[in-house]
Design a protein around this nucleic acid. Structure first.
Length: 270
DNA sequence: CGCACCCCCTGCCGGC
DNA sequence: TGCCGGCAGGGGGTGC
């Protein structure tokens, strides 16, 4: 579920709430996430003071006062929300962090595809991977052009690959390719320099607009205060198969590329 | 190297 | 109404 705009929204919302707070207690009710919560997760977090929560790719990363990093990945259905005093746990409340001000951070994840970990800098780098963050200013059209040379894969697959560009997922790749006028099946090696530039410009614009709208809430996503986003109302192609393109009225097409549904306008995209 | 296909899970929706 | 298959925004592994 959560892609860059959703993770960024959570980080921006929670960072000021968490910074400087100390973790009073950690409750792990269900460690069986896709990556099992480590046995020492609670002891490594308890008593630690939290730094400023940030985001890299689709990961939430919070520095701790002992030099380690608290890492959260929300998978498809994860929610990390802050609330008042303890609430009775509801279904899929897997982990809780109780803070020194009496508030509680709850990690809820029905499908349990997420990850929570405390890692040193080297381990964090291995988990997060080498991909350049989609909002990194050094990610330019020229960068994309050079990195797509000789690649037999599709633009859709290339942009989805977190080892290349970190943060994009299925919704935003469909949206940005529509905005850039590039079909998802386009061979990466055949992208022109101009199209590469348009793709990066479109990517930034879509991501910034989505962040401004608090992300897309298709079904599960909520921000750190349990609020839904509204960018789903601005989607031009995602999940709109058969509906008219909002720019030219041509019916939107759906195709499956590397196992994921992709949506595009055959008129606006070439 | 790229992709098809499997896995990890629960929930929802449409078809019958 | 109830059951079942397919699909869902994540990632990782294997084998061709």
């Amino acid at each position: 579920m959560p892609e860059l705009p959703e993770v960024e929204t959570i980080a921006r919302g929670l960072a000021p709430e968490l910074q400087g707070r100390t973790v009073a207690e950690v409750v792990v009710r269900e460690p069986r996430l896709r990556t099992r919560v480590a046995r020492d997760f609670a002891t490594r977090l308890r008593g630690r003071t939290l730094g400023r929560m940030g985001r890299t790719g689709k990961y939430l990363v919070t520095p701790l006062d002992d030099g380690a990093r608290w890492l959260v990945h929300l998978g498809m259905t994860g929610r990390l929300t802050i609330g008042g005093a303890h609430r009775l746990p509801i279904l899929h409340d897997h982990v809780e962090l109780r803070l020194d001000d009496g508030r509680t951070l709850v990690y809820n994840d029905p499908r349990r595809f997420g990850r929570l970990d405390v890692l040193d800098a080297a381990a964090l780098a291995r988990v997060v991977g080498p991909g350049i963050d989609a909002l990194d200013p050094s990610l330019t059209g020229d960068w994309l052009f050079e990195h797509s040379r000789g690649r037999r894969t599709s633009m859709k697959a290339l942009l989805m690959d977190q080892r290349e560009i970190a943060g994009l997922g299925n919704i935003y790749v469909s949206e940005l390719l529509h905005r850039a006028g590039v079909r998802p099946r386009r061979r990466a090696a055949r992208l022109t320099r101009d199209e590469a530039a348009r793709t990066i410009v479109a990517m930034r614009a879509v991501l910034e607009e989505a962040i401004a709208r608090g992300g897309s809430s298709i079904s599960d996503y909520r921000d750190g205060f349990d609020n839904a986003g509204s960018y789903q109302d601005d989607h031009l192609v995602y999940d709109r198969a058969g509906e008219p393109c909002r720019r030219c009225a041509t019916p939107i097409r759906a195709v499956v590329i590397v196992g994921r549904s992709s949506f595009y306008c055959p008129t606006c995209q070439r």
